[in-house]
Design a protein around this nucleic acid. Sequence first.
DNA 1: TTTTGTGCAAAGTTTTTGCAATTTT
DNA 2: AAAATTGCAAAAACTTTGCACAAAA
Lengths: 153, 153
Amino acid sequence: MIEKNLGSIKTHLQKNGFKLTPQREAIIQILLEKEKEHLSAEEFFMCLKRTHPDIGLATVYRTLEILTQLNVTKKVVFEDGLARYDLRREDSSHFHHHLLCMECGKIEEIYEDLLIDIEKDIESRYRFRVKDHRLTFHGVCLECQKLKGEANE
Amino acid sequence: MIEKNLGSIKTHLQKNGFKLTPQREAIIQILLEKEKEHLSAEEFFMCLKRTHPDIGLATVYRTLEILTQLNVTKKVVFEDGLARYDLRREDSSHFHHHLLCMECGKIEEIYEDLLIDIEKDIESRYRFRVKDHRLTFHGVCLECQKLKGEANE
DNA sequence: TTTTGTGCAAAGTTTTTGCAATTTT
DNA sequence: AAAATTGCAAAAACTTTGCACAAAA
């Protein structure tokens, strides 16, 4: 339902009774531009400084909260405790996982649904209605493996 | 390697050059007692108040950090941003996932490795050396489904 | 014109740190 | 005795909130 373009997100906001402000638009713009990054509120704020020097950090937080509520973004918190906001690819599905390098801190994204069968299994065996998930693999990325001169096990 | 009993964790601490203090012992005790809960540092602190009224919150944080470093505990952060510390079942494996109810906030644990094949796949296709993972399903637990009078879809 | 949103500053939370005193080994 | 650990209070880091003013519908 939600496409990853400015227009549809704007429409979606309005349909839900939210007003369209330049600040919100700018934040959505960043979201689309930096789709593969995993920006924190502070980082959004920094990105916006150039084009919107007057925007307040509180507005960034408030907007990201609305977008998360509207299922446009997904709030993800890793073990550092920082909240990050990722654009959701589609509305109903949730194919989106992370590979977090323990050496350099880099975060890669994976866009595959690895969990379809597992979710079905959880639903039937635990009688838990699954709506979403968070899956992150912690490990060492290829670059850091090379740097450490690791032999392939 | 690490068993879930006080003695072995104490030995493990000592082997790694950490001293054995009553505070640390008390924290490990709570960890073992409340194994199925997902206590934050503050909650550990509260639990300890009765038996160790003089313990400082900073000590709780410091000890939990050491235990995490030694792979005795696993730090888990959900979307509320609060750090929680779970006892690891075993040292090398990592069979431990969560079901987080979006209605009542309850956290259930699952002790099955659902991800063995997926991890192998990630290792070979992304060349990412997987060391650990975090998997949480967000959804509605059975009790809340009943409360809401949901029909089974 | 009514309602919602904004920026700012202040307050709230959670976690970390510096340091003198204390405890472990 | 030497080294590590503790509690406390202060600081840091991140996020939320109150409010008067501004902007959108």
